[in-house]
Amino acid sequence: MTDTPAVEASGATVEAAVAAACAEGGWDPARVQVEVLSPGLVAVPGEHLAARAARVRVRPLPEAAPRALDFLRGLLDRMGIEADVSASLVAPAPARPGGPDGEPAPLLLEVEGADLGVLIGWRGESLRALQTVVNLALGPGGTGGPRVIVDVARYRRRREEQVEAMALRWAARVRRTGEPMTLDPMPPYERRAVHLALADAPGVRTESAGADPERRVTILPAGGGEAWS
């Protein structure tokens, strides 16, 4: 299970709370991900200030974060594309059987801006190329997986949500018919979304077969598709 250390701290303002958390964790405030648990003092015109403490949860970003950000910003600049890039940690996946253990959460670089369709491309192919190039520039990490996930205009997030919704419908069909269903080839993060969406679904299990980019997920009735035997 991914276990990124996090420190929670309070302060008069969010900045002060972040500073306190960074001091406790021994981290550079420029290289952390901040989750605001309570914004603290909020000025409401004409009303009293509620003297509440700000509370934050702070996690350190991977060592490669500044380099990854610089590289991607430099790349977009040279592509003639105006966009903002921000770094955060990918939400850790729930532990699953056979999943990689103790793997550090990858860094998520989110690109936001107007008219970024060319960065996404047909079914996300340009987005995947961008991610490949960023990972190549960073060099090999400790584990086999990508160190950096690139998302553009929340394309991946939206696709994951779509794939999850479809997975639930397909699972219902497999349960009803008792017949396995093999899906179209999908990139790794979409397959992962199917596996995760159906990890706890009753009456079905999932498997992947084939080699990228033709690797496909099959949804099977739980018990190995023996409904007919």
Binding site: R78, I81, V118, S126, R128, A129, T132
Partner: peptide, 18 residues
């Protein structure tokens, strides 16, 4: 050809707008 294909795709994305 995975690396050069990714590089080509990024260049293609930049060129598409032009």
């Amino acid at each position: 050809g995975r690396h050069i294909e990714a590089i080509r795709m990024v260049v293609r994305s930049a060129a598409l707008r032009q």
